[in-house]
């Protein structure tokens, strides 16, 4: 793609999200979301093979529907209550519609079906943008409207997301689909805690972005799209293979790694709020997610796949990728757990 065009697209991608962050009026927030969608569509469709075009079409249809529903809900609220502010969304019909539309935009459980298919059709860098930066603007809106939403809807959606995210990923061999289901599961955890401790939602989103970026950058470095190519990646870079296993376990939320921090704090907060059943169910469904992360780790580091000699000995080419972002973000994805006391003090939990 022409670098000037790419610059314009990327800057309007940033502009859309920042416009949504900064707005207090629903129309402006909707404009930010639209700019965001319109800016990423050419980036998604830049390789014009059938899968990319199909993914772009599906993404466009879902995002346009969700944005129209958001604007419809806020217009209804303006007709009924006479208020355009984002904080003052008060009519129950409008709040439920907005929540469903934001769930469609993010890919939460009852309306998640587009996310694995879209992510499967994209290349890894675009998939990284889609699963990190594109989540920020809907989350900014969701945190602002959260206090007025029906709490049983939020809890049901969160639990269903964690369940579906764990369950759907069990049968996949494509890494991008596995990452899409992991994204659904993590978003479920964030929505679960949304009404009780919004700062924990932000912390969880931040750590999810770090871990997912690390996973996507690793896959980009290894140039691997399926479990099989991941299983032979130790021949290219053994250190990265060992660290990738740890990053995957961090995504699964195992204790000495930083992915454990949001799960720990969320379970603690849910128990404090008197919701032990929801906490138990969420912890149980995290086991389903852990199963497929563990399968990836097993394929990468714990076993040697019965491949032919030509598959295990790929050409050793000079590394031309810039690996500084990968190394920084991998360190962050592995070692942030000791910061938990500082984080809890800063968030004043």
């Amino acid at each position: 793609m022409n670098p000037y065009v790419l610059t314009i697209l990327l800057s309007s991608l940033g502009l859309g999200t920042i416009l949504t962050f900064a707005s207090s009026h629903w129309l402006l927030a909707w404009m930010g979301l639209e700019i965001n969608t319109l800016a990423i569509i050419p980036i998604m469709a830049q390789q014009s093979h059938p899968r990319a075009i199909e993914a772009t079409t599906k993404y466009f249809l879902t995002q346009a529907t969700a944005a129209a529903m958001i604007l419809f809900a806020s217009t209804t609220n303006a007709w009924l209550v006479g208020e355009w502010e984002i904080h003052q969304l008060s009519h129950p019909l409008a709040t439920t519609t907005v929540m469903l539309a934001l769930a469609l935009k993010l890919g939460l459980a009852p309306v998640h079906f587009w996310l694995p298919e879209v992510l499967q059709g994209l290349e890894l860098t675009t998939g990284l943008i889609l699963s990190t930066w594109q989540k920020l603007a809907p989350f900014a809106l969701m945190i602002q409207v959260a206090p007025t939403i029906n709490s049983s809807l939020l809890i049901a959606m969160g639990l269903l997301s964690t369940l579906v995210g764990g369950w759907g990923g069990l049968n996949q061999t494509q890494l991008r689909k596995i990452l899409a289901y992991s994204s659904i599961a993590h978003l479920g955890w964030m929505v679960l805690i949304l009404q009780y401790a919004p700062s924990l939602t932000l912390l969880s989103l931040f750590l999810y972005i770090i871990m997912t970026s690390s996973a996507f950058l690793t896959l980009k470095t290894n140039n691997s799209l399926t479990i099989n190519t991941l299983a032979t990646s130790w021949t290219k870079s053994p250190t990265l293979a060992a660290l990738t296993a740890l990053v995957l376990l961090s995504l699964g939320g195992l204790p000495p790694l930083s992915g454990f921090m949001p799960k720990w704090l969320i379970l603690q907060e849910l128990t404090k709020q008197g919701l032990p059943l929801s906490a138990t169910l969420a912890a149980m469904t995290a086991l389903l997610s852990l199963y497929f992360y563990l399968r990836l780790c097993y394929a990468m580091t714990l076993t040697i796949y019965p491949n032919t000699l030509t598959a295990t000995a790929p050409w050793r080419l000079n590394f031309t990728l810039i690996t500084l972002p990968l190394s920084i973000i991998t360190i962050l994805a592995l070692g942030l757990l000791p910061l938990t006391p500082a984080v809890t003090t800063l968030l004043t939990l």
């Binding site: 569509i41 469709a45 014009s48 093979h49 059938p50 075009i53 199909e54 772009t56 079409t57 466009f60």
Partner: peptide, 9 residues
């Protein structure tokens, strides 16, 4: 996107 879909599919 309609044109692109018609060309690829």
């Amino acid at each position: 996107l309609l044109v692109a879909t018609a060309r690829t599919h």
